[in-house]
Amino acid sequence: MKILVLISKVPDTTAKISFTENNTKFNTEGVQFILNPYDEWYALVRGIELKEANGGSVTVLNVGRADNDPIIRKALAIGADDAVRIDTDDLDALNVAKQIAAYAKDQNYDIILCGKETIDYNGSQVGGMVAQLLGLPYVSLATKLDLNGDTATLERDIQGGSEVIEVKLPFVASAAKGMAEARIPNMRGIMAARTKPLNVVQPVDAANATEVVEYSLPPSKQGCKFIDPDNVEELVELLHTEAKVI
């Protein structure tokens, strides 16, 4: 069983977000980066669990520069067997997916997993794009993944209930909360991570299809306004003129 887990580096949730170059670039100055939680807690850990139960290997793949190595080694410390880093940056989702697909197409992975989204751009695009580029089925937002021979059973939350999907290997899936329990890297894993292979490969030629024109911060939170329950007219007035929702 060959499992590939796609991992991203994202700013820590407590990071202060600001922009440079006329609001076209994210300012990374002083920002702490972490392994994207959906990739780490769910996709990676479930991949490792499947390997532990069925044998095989888990490879983690990241598209990025050498400053991503600490988060890659964290994935190795948690239990991935080896890692690949495609050495490029500043790509949009399609370009990232093309890089991944170009690498993965000859590797015969049985399962390719990623988190349901990254917590920075929340695009939820790369998994589906990789599946399309590799001609594989794609199950998004899976909360459960079980294997039975060459068939996988996945569950996903849908409006008002859940959906159970069967899919033949190989396939691509994105993992949501519930698929696994986060693991803390232990000392043995941390020390083993040093010696596990981290292969750096060159990117293929591909162009971005989209361009970021501008970033802006959400408007700062407004304080709550309390209105006396007897004063419904004032409430209606404010909802109409100030909040402009009615």
């Binding site: 190595d69 080694r73 410390a77 803390i184 000392m187 941390i190 020390m191 040093r194």
Partner: peptide, 17 residues
């Protein structure tokens, strides 16, 4: 170094969880 930071993170995660 990176390994020391990772060990510190593990200690922190253990405490928080």
């Amino acid at each position: 170094n990176e390994e020391q930071k990772m060990i510190a993170d593990t200690c922190r995660d253990f405490l928080e969880q």
